[in-house]
Simulated scan of single mutants.
Amino acid sequence: MKTSAGATVEDVNHMVLQCIEGMQSKIPSRGHLRGVGLSVPGLVNRQEGILTYSHTFGWKDIPLASLIRKKTHIPVFLDNEANLLSLGELCFGSGKIYKNFICVDIRYGIGCGIVYENKLLDIPGELGQICLDNLTHVKKDMPRLTLEDRASDHAVLKKVEIMLQQGSTSSLLKSYTGPVTLDRFREALLNNDQAALSIFNQALSDLGIALAFLVNIFHPEAFIFHGPMTENNPLFYSRLREVIDTCSLSPFSATLDLKPSRFQNMGGSVGAVALVLHELLDLNPAFFTKS
Rank of each mutant, 00 (worst) to 15 (best):
C19R: 08
I217K: 07
E161F: 11
Q194S: 15
V138H: 01
L277R: 07
E48R: 11
G268D: 11
N284S: 01
L145A: 01
S39Q: 07
S54M: 06
S291N: 11
L121A: 09
L157A: 13
R46K: 04
I244W: 00
D193L: 01
P143W: 02
V115C: 03
L207V: 11
V160P: 13
P63M: 06
K96I: 12
A222W: 00
N13P: 00
N100G: 05
M266C: 05
N118R: 14
L84P: 10
S238A: 10
F223G: 15
H14F: 03
L51A: 14
F92C: 10
D206S: 09
I27F: 00
L38T: 06
S39V: 08
Q264L: 09
L145I: 11
I130S: 13
K2S: 11
G109V: 13
R241L: 11
V243G: 05
N201Q: 12
L281R: 03
G109N: 15
N45Y: 02
L17E: 12
A274N: 11
T230A: 11
G167I: 09
V276K: 03
S152Y: 04
K60R: 14
G268R: 12
M163T: 02
V270Q: 13
D133C: 11
L132Y: 15
R46P: 00
N232V: 02
F92M: 07
E126T: 10
T177A: 08
I162L: 12
D257F: 00
E117S: 05
C91L: 00
L172S: 07
G178S: 01
L157Y: 13
G113S: 04
T136I: 02
L127A: 09
A82P: 14
D122L: 05
A196L: 05
L135M: 03
I130N: 14
C19D: 09
L258R: 04
P28Y: 01
K158F: 14
M1R: 08
F236G: 13
L87E: 12
Q202N: 09
D257A: 11
L67F: 01
K290T: 07
H14Y: 06
Q18E: 15
G125M: 03
L84A: 13
T72E: 10
V115M: 02
L38E: 13
G178N: 00
A188T: 06
A286T: 06
N13Q: 12
D149L: 04
S39C: 15
R30T: 08
H73T: 13
F236Q: 10
L214T: 10
L147Y: 00
Q47N: 06
R46F: 05
T230S: 15
V44D: 02
M142V: 10
L240I: 09
